[in-house]
Simulated scan of single mutants.
Amino acid sequence: MLNAPRRSARAAASASAARPSATAGNVKKLILIGSSTGGVEALRNVLVGFPFDCPPTLIVQHTGKNFGSGLVSLLDRICPARVRAAEDGITLEPGHVYIAAGQRRHMGLTSRKPLRLRMKEGPDISGHTPSVDALFTSAVPYGKDVVATILTGMGQDGARGLLELRKAGAKTFAQDEKSSVVYGMPRVAWEMGAAQQQVPLTRMANTLLQASKV
């Protein structure tokens, strides 16, 4: 990760000029991702395959409180889309990836459009702050417009929320055992029927993007 090449000025300028003209908040699909142990490398593998005009993507990554800003910076180096830290009140835009990591607030969605991020203090949910379950549960009202996945990680955070999303019409996935550093969170999601399909990490980016087009 530390050796990830920064996007060239020419590529960045080209991507900026070609960004979609959709109005902020006027989005059709959302991609939600939850990850924990082994998630940094997993996210790198996923986001490098995302185009500059990807659907708004919200990520909760369990990490230490001092690593959140560094993670955002590292992923922004390799992702064609813009990667930024989650902040309260941000209006969701295509071509942007929002990451909650190392914060003491849960990330969720507002209950009305235009869709915005809501950062809320509170006790741990499923043992974590920020919590994947908190993010997934907040998106249930928009279920049919959501594509969600759980990547490698220890524990069960995200499984319950993923099940609620599936019941609400979302397309749901989990990383498969072979490609997971820790097959904990994905396993629970799969065994409880929250994930419709298990996907190898190498195919995850394409799977999420294709599901967001349907």
Rank of each mutant, 00 (worst) to 15 (best):
L209D: 09
G153M: 01
S179N: 09
M119Q: 07
L43P: 09
R160M: 13
P130Y: 00
A85E: 07
T63D: 14
M119C: 09
P20K: 14
L32A: 07
S16M: 14
L163T: 13
E164K: 11
R44D: 14
L71N: 03
R105N: 15
A159I: 02
G64N: 05
M204Y: 03
A12P: 13
L74F: 12
F50D: 01
T129P: 05
L165P: 08
K120R: 06
R187W: 02
R187G: 02
Y183G: 08
V214T: 09
G161S: 05
T57P: 02
L43K: 11
A148C: 05
P130R: 00
G161R: 04
Q196M: 10
M185L: 08
R77T: 15
R84W: 14
K28Y: 04
E121F: 04
A101S: 05
S14R: 13
S8V: 06
G34T: 01
C79A: 00
N66D: 15
S179D: 10
I59T: 03
G122N: 07
V132H: 00
E164P: 07
D133N: 08
I59F: 03
Y98D: 05
K144M: 12
V146G: 01
S35H: 08
H62L: 07
L165C: 09
R104S: 15
K178R: 11
P51C: 10
L43C: 12
D145E: 11
A159S: 13
A174D: 04
I150T: 10
A194Y: 02
L162R: 00
A17S: 09
M185N: 04
G38P: 13
E177H: 15
N3T: 13
F50K: 12
I33M: 08
L117S: 05
Q210T: 13
A81P: 00
R187E: 04
S16K: 07
Q61K: 08
N26V: 12
